[in-house]
Design a protein around this nucleic acid. Structure first.
Ligand SMILES: [Zn+2]
Ligand SMILES: [Zn+2]
Ligand SMILES: [Zn+2]
Ligand SMILES: [Zn+2]
Lengths: 142, 142
DNA sequence: CAGAAACTGATACAGTGTATCATGACACTC
DNA sequence: GAGTGTCATGATACACTGTATCAGTTTCTG
């Protein structure tokens, strides 16, 4: 298994490559996300970018999601967070105490998932997997 | 892997055992859910039970969730559905076309997940996993 | 049957995301 | 560098799912 740490992709270039215009609001969103090492919520981004409309923040995140450079995480309570996708297919851990997001890759999971997928009737179009944890910091603090 | 098919638990008895009162609204909710073989949304239940208040429907589903006899599913778009939990730990498939929910168990996944969990710093408190599919019916129809 | 405790449901609220649409900014050509 | 078509913005309103409140009702226990 790989606990990740790798360089951020150039989010702005990703948008440009996909034919979207480079605008001030998009630059601001993308710059902010580029700093964020942990997961973030859309509202959090809105709050930190008062110069960018809420709708635009949501739209930008959606574009980045579709481009595959941002991923969406589901929390146990139904909430959602986002996280930069640095590189290849991976999955996430979320601390249920503090919300910190981690990332990991594991080829054996993917292999098992492929095996299961072969037994499921119909066509697999994707999968989701998250670990809910109490992170070391939260364990230490309590 | 096991593609499931098994008897429904007695939902009402589950609530009773947990010290909750047996009331008409709860009976109605529980009876309806007992029929539902596929996933369902909370609003769908509300619509089918005009004699039960919306809040009560949500509250009842929450109690059944906590009791572990109902599970929550996350859809790719962030939506949520629920499904009866017939028996032991399992995971779900959701058709992205028609929304039909399936269920499967697989011990090798769980084994791999335990292995990964051992490498993740912190304490694992749960996990989530869903397959998104296009089901056979939807494939046939298109 | 009486009383305490739990439950209900109408309503209002909260959180997250989307639709609308008039206005403004971008990129490209000349 | 100005002109122009198209795309993007953001204020607002809306949609959806779930929760908080609270007066009034039902259930259970004794
Ligand atoms: Zn995977
Ligand atoms: Zn933590
Ligand atoms: Zn289907
Ligand atoms: Zn599992």
């Amino acid at each position: 298994m790989t606990l990740s740490a790798r360089a951020n992709p150039d989010l702005l270039a990703t948008l440009e490559d996909r034919g979207y215009r480079v605008t001030r609001p998009r630059r601001e969103v993308v710059n902010l996300l580029g700093q964020k090492q942990e997961g973030f919520s859309a509202e959090e981004v809105c709050a930190e970018l008062p110069g960018v409309g809420r709708a635009t923040v949501y739209r930008s995140i959606k574009l980045l999601l579709e481009a595959g450079v941002v991923c969406k995480l589901m929390l146990p309570n139904g909430g959602q967070k986002y996280s930069l996708a640095r590189g290849e297919h991976h999955h996430h851990t979320v601390c249920v105490m503090c919300g910190t997001v981690g990332e990991f890759r594991d080829s054996s999971v993917e292999r098992v998932l492929r095996t299961i997928g072969a037994d499921i009737p119909g066509k697999i179009v994707g999968h989701r997997m998250e670990f809910y944890i109490t992170c070391q910091d939260c364990l230490d603090t309590s």
